[in-house]
Design a protein around this nucleic acid. Structure first.
Lengths: 228, 228
DNA sequence: CGTGCTCTTGAGTGAAATCAACACATGTGG
DNA sequence: CCACATGTGTTGATTTCACTCAAGAGCACG
């Protein structure tokens, strides 16, 4: 087994306050795992036996309704932890994690989580700050779902996506992973038909450019106008 | 200033693992505050300078949209902490807290929160477990809002209310604080008109009894049928 | 080169919002 | 004590947004 390089973690805010030796200790407990696009990392309801750090790729956190409908709770970009609900007292995973693109992860047995939280300065703060950000996101999501029309929700969702996972291109800002109309409908509580119509309209007015599984926002300002 | 009685806290799960002396220390740092029904404890965006324990009454956590619409994020029953978002790295309150009935609270300056979390066994676990429960609730809320019809969301909301804050009466289970059609519409992302029609229909079929600001669920099972 | 995803677009439908009017309860101040 | 304002709740009529149903076109991959 190859030793992992310490620079993998040293640049992440989460580990910024740790010294080389501490990072070494943490890395020596980690397992590296690679996942193809579309692979399931863990499923809702499973015993939460590992927690993960996403080194590269994107993770989609999804939930299923009893009726079998799926909704996407959030996307996790590289550098962030996931599967850490045990820090909030859960013993099973509260949602399913699927890869939105090819992913590279580190994983640790869950029993180390409390140790890390207590032993490493800044780690606990970082973890709970991550949780705080996600909770704030969820709250905004609820506010949107409860009060806004589909058009506004989709505009807000796209704006969030380009802010969190946007990549600059010649034409504008591109969402960094493959994303379908169906995916967006599962993020906004809508249908792929309605999303298709909306994106077609926005393409016509020059707000976005879109091809198969790819969306480039060419005029974010126009999107902001649609978002409220 | 009256000394607060230790039994106030000793029976709460949050403080179960603490001895008398520790509870005494905590109480000596606390301030008691009483609020009339409808009073605002703190507002979204304010610097988070205190955290609270609700001894008696009910707290409504609400958020405002830029457009001025209001939605109710959750209700907090007595015995629970609120205003603890600082534990997730927030420096301002992420939502407004309003009393749904007359309330009695203890409050502490926020600078003690980290001390409590670190010093008292079980307190940290309890706090994060509370957070975990609320996050799980929010997740379910999102799933409901994204996939269910108004009727199902209202049924689920009533079921949650009677589970969390229900009080047994001769007729059935009553929601323990005054609640209007408008309130329920703000919990479900609907309108008071639709809620009124729904509750009228359910009253006609014998599922609930309702008068001004009061709802008694007489047949929870029928409500379950409406909930999915 | 067909088979399965992904995406588009039109037509019809329905759930719930909006608009509108009124009834009733509660509390306030003259 | 009454008059009035305010808050709450009901119910009907109308409208609209977005879902459902339906069909087909384009692309990608084995």
């Amino acid at each position: 087994m190859n030793k992992l390089d310490e620079s993998l973690l040293a640049n992440l805010p989460l580990f910024a306050k740790l010294d080389r030796a501490q990072i070494r200790d943490i890395l020596d407990l980690a397992t590296t795992r690679r996942f193809d696009a579309g692979a399931t990392v863990f499923e809702e309801g499973e015993a939460a036996e590992h927690f993960y750090l996403l080194l590269d790729g994107y993770i989609r956190v999804v939930r299923l309704t009893p009726a079998g409908e799926q909704i996407i709770a959030l996307h996790i970009p590289s550098g962030h932890l996931f599967g850490i609900a045990a820090a909030l007292g859960h013993t099973t995973y509260p949602a399913t994690s699927v890869t939105a693109a090819e992913c590279l992860c580190l994983s640790w047995p869950m029993r180390h989580l409390n140790g890390f939280l207590q032993s490493y300065t800044g780690f606990s703060d970082g973890v709970y700050k991550t949780v705080g950000t996600r909770v704030a996101d969820m709250n905004n999501r609820i506010l949107e779902l409860a009060t806004q029309q589909v058009e506004q929700r989709v505009a807000n969702t796209l704006l969030r996506l380009i802010n969190q996972t946007g990549r600059k291109t010649d034409d504008g800002i591109e969402i960094d992973f493959p994303i379908t109309r169906q995916d967006i409908s599962e993020m906004t509580g809508s249908t792929l038909h309605t999303i298709s119509r909306l994106l077609s309209a926005w393409e016509r007015e020059g707000t976005i450019k879109s091809t198969r599984k790819k969306i480039v926002v060419t005029d974010p300002h126009k999107l902001v106008l649609h978002s409220s």
